[in-house]
Amino acid sequence: MTTPITGTAAGVPFTALGPADGGPAPLIITWHMLDAPRSDPAFAAALPMHGLPAWRVHLGMPMCGARMVNGSMDAALELVHKDPLMAYLHPFVEQAVSEFPAALASIREQLPVGEGPIGVLGGSLGGAVALRVLADTQTPIFAGAVVNAAIRMRSVVELFPGEYPYDAASTKAVDSLDFLAKTDVLAERAPLLVVSGEQDHPGLRADALTLTEAMGERAELLSIPGMAHPLAEEPGIEPAPQLPHARAVDDGLIAWFGRHLRSLG
């Protein structure tokens, strides 16, 4: 196991884990959940993917981890109460995606990862970021994976109390994050592993099954029996011992990315 490296990439905090020898290797970028584990070091501890011949760089999401306001998630929770879609979900994804190109360039300057195709991984809301990078950027990607992901943002909005009052702007925003409508583009871009806990929120679970089926041979489904939505115990900000369900996810990711790393030659 390698010691985590922490730093910032164009202002984005990251936790990096290198290959066993710490030398040049391909790159896998991840975006964490906003449920536990809700920071880049906590996500790195939950899904370290040890043994892969790759650098795994876990990026911090907005207002999480090192970017929490006054050291807590209270400011983010205030945005949830203000407007879960337009103040929280949509802008967090948009900011993470907009930060990605400069962060990637900075990581390439700091770590021996080369200029080749990368892997991408996202959990929960971070899954929407990974899917957006797949669907809406030209970054070369050799493989992707999502875990209990926000595949269709309307399904996520439905998890919040009350009926959401959609208008023209919020309808446009939520539809821009409907990746069931972008399966053809996703299938063209890279093979995708869809990891889904069998006890995840029913809407998110249904979206995972639908996405896998729609992508055909370009996607694989990994169902984790007994796993609900989080991958770690609360509060999920600091690194913690890997839970059994997270270990099962981690094993699946190691096998998935290992297979596609070998295809890079």
Rank of each mutant, 00 (worst) to 15 (best):
L134I: 12
A25N: 04
A9M: 09
T8P: 02
H245E: 14
G71Q: 06
G122W: 02
D207T: 03
A20S: 13
P225I: 01
N148R: 07
M68R: 15
L243Y: 05
D35Q: 14
A240K: 14
A150I: 02
E99A: 12
N70D: 15
L52C: 08
P84N: 13
I107A: 06
P165R: 11
A246P: 06
P112T: 00
P202K: 04
T15K: 11
S263I: 03
A143I: 01
A96G: 03
P225A: 06
P84A: 12
T137G: 04
L47W: 06
L52H: 07
P26Q: 09
Q138P: 05
L193H: 07
R262F: 09
E99F: 01
A143L: 02
H81V: 10
I5E: 13
V174G: 00
S223Q: 12
P235Q: 04
V129Q: 00
A42V: 01
G22I: 05
L104T: 00
P191R: 06
V120S: 07
G71E: 06
I151H: 06
L253S: 07
S39Q: 07
L121R: 01
T8M: 11
A10R: 07
L180A: 14
G236A: 10
G127R: 01
Y88I: 00
Y88D: 12
E233G: 13
V93D: 00
G51C: 09
Q199G: 02
G144S: 10
E234N: 15
Q199S: 14
D35T: 15
V195T: 02
V249A: 08
L131Y: 06
W55A: 11
H229T: 02
H32W: 06
T30I: 03
G51S: 07
D136R: 12
F179M: 12
